[in-house]
């Protein structure tokens, strides 16, 4: 672990990415407390104003303060984006690794299940899942956390398949390499073989998938709320803010620029962190 960190620290861009992400997270946590303007107050006399000292990020068409909304909604967007993708990666790596490592019947079964999941029509499936489980999960976890879990579960559950295919493809090539065969003949356990010898050599595409996935999940979350499946309409997640801004692109571009920029900065910093992490994990570069 210490090795990984030492290697990671050497990567300048990765450290910068880490810094930017830390700043974003910190402002989401502390920002709403420091910045006293409420984000949900409607005031039509202040509608669609550009950035000013009073409203740093300007206001939207209802006169709500955009910075307060970015800070408030960002907690949800970021939490959803990261957790949903973590779930997708966890499922994808697990299934892909087992299929690729074991091969044979297990591989066939797992990959055909993957085919099935890929083929399912997402939109009707979402409607069905929400219809079947929303009230049940709300009863267990409460209305807010219930929706949060449901959104993560849904986004994670719909995004693991490409990861599984990628990991399996990586395993198929790596597992035949000389050093794996050597480790195997030395009696390494399957877990150790997967974890120490094969996975680090197949992790590159997975990290890319995770990086891009976070950005995607932030947008997907907003798509869910347009279907009435996500958070209530007065929760200003980044994706929703971007969507709401689209009709005002020519009259009030600031409504789009700020949420767009934070999404981009998040994705970019995660990308550099991922890049650095990949190098740090890769046994060959150590």
């Amino acid at each position: 672990m210490g090795d990984v960190w030492r290697q990671f620290r050497r990567d300048k861009m990765a450290v910068v990415g880490m810094g930017v992400l830390a700043i974003i997270i910190l402002s989401l946590l502390v920002g709403p407390l420091v910045y006293g303007v409420p984000g949900d107050e409607i005031d039509f006399t202040q509608a669609s104003l550009g950035p000013s000292w009073q409203h740093w990020f300007g206001t939207n068409d209802l006169g709500q303060d955009q910075l307060a909304r970015v800070l408030w909604g960002g907690r949800i967007s970021l939490a959803v984006g990261v957790s949903a993708i973590a779930l997708a990666i966890f499922l994808g790596v697990g299934i892909g690794a087992v299929a690729g490592f074991c091969g044979g019947v297990i591989d066939t079964i797992l990959m055909r299940i993957t085919d099935l999941c890929l083929a399912l029509p997402q939109l009707p499936l979402l409607l069905l899942v929400v219809y079947l489980f929303r009230d049940a999960i709300k009863a267990v976890a409460g209305p807010e956390w219930g929706i949060f879990y449901l959104v993560i579960f849904v986004i994670g559950g719909l995004n693991w398949m490409p990861v599984a295919r990628l990991v399996r493809a990586g395993f198929l090539t790596v597992r035949q390499m000389d050093y794996v065969a050597a480790a195997r003949s030395l009696g390494a356990s399957p877990m150790r073989l997967i974890w120490v010898h094969i996975l680090p050599n197949a992790i590159g595409p997975v990290i890319v998938a995770a990086t891009l996935g976070v950005g995607n999940a932030i947008i997907t979350e907003s798509t869910l709320s347009f279907l009435g499946l996500g958070f209530p309409p007065d929760v200003p997640t980044w994706g929703r803010m971007l969507y709401e801004a689209k009709d005002y692109l020519d009259s009030a571009p600031h409504m789009a620029i700020f949420p767009g920029t934070v999404i981009f900065l998040t994705v970019l910093s995660i990308n550099y962190i991922g890049d650095g992490l990949r190098d740090a994990i890769d046994p060959k570069t150590r």
């Binding site: 950005g215 947008i219 971007l242 789009a256 981009f264 994705v267 970019l268 990308n271």
Partner: peptide, 11 residues
């Protein structure tokens, strides 16, 4: 690339 990817295609 990441700017183009971060922005959804509707945008």
């Amino acid at each position: 690339g990441l700017i183009w990817f971060s922005l959804p295609t509707f945008f």
